[in-house]
């Protein structure tokens, strides 16, 4: 990459959620990410847009995938990257978080990437820190870079979002991925369906401009994209669904259920997968339908685009 003076893209100095983005910002981020897809496939993957900058990855929740994706994105753009994994402690979380924020602020980072188990944590940090904050997942609220990488994956396959029907299936109730995705897809004029048992649908889900199905076969009928969500193990044993075998029988994506989707429909999953719970192995591993590896690749490119855009300053 040549380092010509780049035009600003974002209207804010943080990326806290899809909610605060506009369609034109999203389109610009996706376009920028395309250039990083090319870079990442080249032998020399280095650019200098973050040369001299400091990026801190602050992860209060374990995450191999997202953390390494941000780390790689930062390093490829030439930043100094510091990874901090913070174990959840029993002390009052709000207080600890603000204390941590002031400590980090004193180290003068340029960008802080944060993941936290509580919704609103990234927002709180953005108000306490002088640097840009990227939300890498907060509670059940938002995971904007996941939605952006999913959008990039879809756009590269379909060219755009209009006239596309996307089904988001599974634990919508606890999912920040679902919330960010449905916001983004609705903003980009895709039709969104939610498919889940009623125990895993959030209150007033119908107010989000989506169609809701509790029967997966009906919900998948004619869809272009099937987005599966991870069902966390502790939610399977009777609290929200009675068992993994029942969940897989009615909400696990297998060949039979996928057969109800549009011919050639593609399957996505944010990972990590529970094989045999929400998705059958033969589908997860079928490169003709599964976009799962491609999502991971797009993840690095989209995070490079986000870091680049934040470094450019406010439009």
């Amino acid at each position: 990459m040549t380092s010509a003076p780049a035009a600003p893209i974002l209207k804010t100095s943080h990326l806290l959620g899809i909610e605060s983005l506009s369609p034109s910002e999203i389109t610009a981020l996706l376009d920028l990410a395309e250039t990083y897809v090319v870079l990442n496939r080249a032998p020399d993957k280095k650019a200098a847009v973050l040369k001299g900058r400091t990026l801190i990855n602050l992860f209060f929740e374990a995450s191999t995938r997202t953390q390494s994706s941000f780390e790689l994105a930062g390093k490829r753009l030439g930043a100094d990257v510091l990874n901090m994994s913070v174990k959840t402690s029993s002390v009052s979380k709000g207080e600890t978080l603000i204390d941590t924020a002031s400590t980090l602020n004193a180290m003068r980072p340029d960008i802080l990437v944060v993941r936290h188990q509580d919704s609103g944590a990234a927002e709180l940090l953005s108000r306490k820190l002088d640097c840009s904050v990227v939300n890498a997942g907060d509670g059940a609220h938002e995971h904007p870079t996941q939605a952006l990488l999913d959008a990039l994956t879809i756009k590269r396959r379909h060219g755009g979002f209009e006239n596309l029907t996307v089904a988001i299936c599974g634990d919508v109730l606890h999912s920040r991925v679902a919330r960010s995705n449905l916001r983004l897809l609705a903003m980009m004029s895709a039709r969104v369906r939610l498919i889940a048992p009623r125990t895993l649908l959030p209150a007033d889900a119908d107010r989000f401009g989506v169609e809701i199905f509790t029967d997966m076969k009906q919900g998948l009928a004619g869809v272009d994209i099937v987005m599966m969500l991870r069902l966390q193990l502790e939610r399977m044993a009777g609290a929200f669904v009675p068992s993994t075998r029942e969940y897989f029988r009615f909400y696990g994506l297998d060949r039979e259920k996928l057969g109800y989707a549009k011919p050639g429909a593609l399957v996505m999953h944010p990972g990590p997968m529970n094989r045999g719970v929400e998705i059958a192995s033969d589908i997860a591993d079928d490169i003709a339908v599964s976009l799962i590896s491609e999502q991971v690749e797009m993840g690095v490119a989209i995070r490079m685009a986000v870091l680049d855009a934040l470094a450019r300053g406010i439009a």
């Binding site: 044993a237 009777g238 609290a239 009675p242 068992s243 075998r245 029942e246 029988r249 009615f250």
Partner: peptide
């Protein structure tokens, strides 16, 4: 399960 009032049964199955 077990009529214990704690976890739901496999209603679908």
């Amino acid at each position: 399960r077990g009529l214990a009032g704690e976890t739901m049964t496999e209603i679908g199955l």
